[in-house]
Structure formats: structure tokens, C-alpha cells
Amino acid sequence: MHYAGRELPPFNRFVDVRDVAYAHIQAFEIPSAAGRYCIVESAIDVSKLWKILHQLFPEFHLDEKFEDKPIKKLYQVSKEKIKSLGVNFIPLEVSLKDTVESLKEKGFISF
């Protein structure tokens, strides 16, 4: 898959920065916390990401060049260990909506 002449990864991992901050605090404050934690809310392909953004912001004219072919070898990251710290992930849709609205509010994007 290409966009603007660049090869895009077939899928991406997403997590809200607020969840990352909370997980760091929890890992510091909970005495039993040890080792490494994967902090991933979801792993989705780029076409699904574009669909979500288009549904949330139809007025934002996104490039329609992305093929609607789901990646066959998509994987999920286990959330079991990170949830042991009390992390309840902000859903991707909420994170994307909040991010775009924040960027609009600060004047970084407009549509």
C-alpha cells in the first residue's frame, strides 16, 4: 500500500497517550509491578483507520486511495498483563476523535 509515494506498513498499533501516562504511574506506584508491559489498545490496518476517521469526521476529505482489503495476518497484543495494573484502555475511536478535535482547536488542522 502506498500513500504520497511512500510505502505504508500494512497495520499499525495504537494506544492513547493518556493510557500510557496512567500505565507508567501505576507501574511506579504498584509494588508488585515488574517486567515489561505491552501497551497496545488495538492493532488495525490502515484502511480501517481511514474508515473510522471518515465516520467521525465526514467533512474532512480524506484521500480515498486506500484499498479496502483487510490484512490476512493481523494480530492482537495481549492486554492481560497491562490490565493487571488497572489500565482500562480508551477506545481507539474516542482517542482519534479527541486527537483530531485537539488538533483543530490548536489550529494545526482545519476542514
Rank of each mutant, 00 (worst) to 15 (best):
H2F: 15
Y3L: 09
G5F: 06
R6W: 11
R6I: 07
P10L: 01
P10G: 01
F11D: 09
N12L: 13
N12R: 12
R13L: 11
F14N: 05
F14Y: 15
F14E: 04
F14W: 15
V17T: 10
V17M: 12
V17C: 09
R18Q: 09
R18P: 03
A21Q: 01
Y22C: 00
Y22N: 06
A23L: 04
A23R: 01
A23G: 03
A23H: 04
H24V: 08
H24Y: 14
H24D: 03
I25C: 01
I25N: 00
I25M: 10
Q26D: 02
A27G: 06
F28E: 11
P31I: 00
A34F: 12
A34P: 00
G35F: 05
G35Q: 07
R36Q: 13
Y37K: 02
C38K: 13
C38D: 15
I39V: 11
I39Q: 01
V40R: 04
E41D: 12
E41M: 07
S42T: 13
A43L: 06
A43V: 15
I44H: 07
I44N: 04
D45K: 04
V46T: 14
S47F: 05
S47A: 11
S47H: 10
K48L: 14
L49I: 02
W50H: 09
K51D: 14
K51H: 10
K51L: 11
K51I: 03
L53G: 01
L53S: 05
L53Y: 01
Q55N: 15
L56W: 02
L56Q: 04
P58G: 07
E59P: 00
E59M: 09
E59T: 09
F60V: 13
F60P: 00
F60E: 10
H61G: 11
D63M: 05
D63L: 04
E64K: 14
K65G: 15
K65I: 13
F66G: 07
F66S: 13
E67T: 12
D68H: 12
D68C: 02
P70D: 15
P70C: 06
I71L: 15
I71A: 11
I71M: 11
K73V: 10
K73R: 14
L74H: 00
Y75N: 08
Y75G: 07
V77E: 08
V77G: 02
V77I: 14
S78F: 08
E80P: 00
E80F: 10
K81T: 07
K81V: 05
I82P: 02
I82K: 04
K83V: 02
K83F: 03
L85D: 04
G86E: 06
V87N: 05
N88H: 12
N88S: 12
I90V: 08
P91A: 02
V94Y: 03
S95G: 11
T99Y: 07
E101S: 06
S102K: 15
L103A: 12
K104P: 01
K104W: 09
E105N: 09
E105A: 13
K106E: 13
K106M: 09
K106L: 14
G107S: 07
I109W: 07
F111K: 12
F111L: 13
F111N: 10
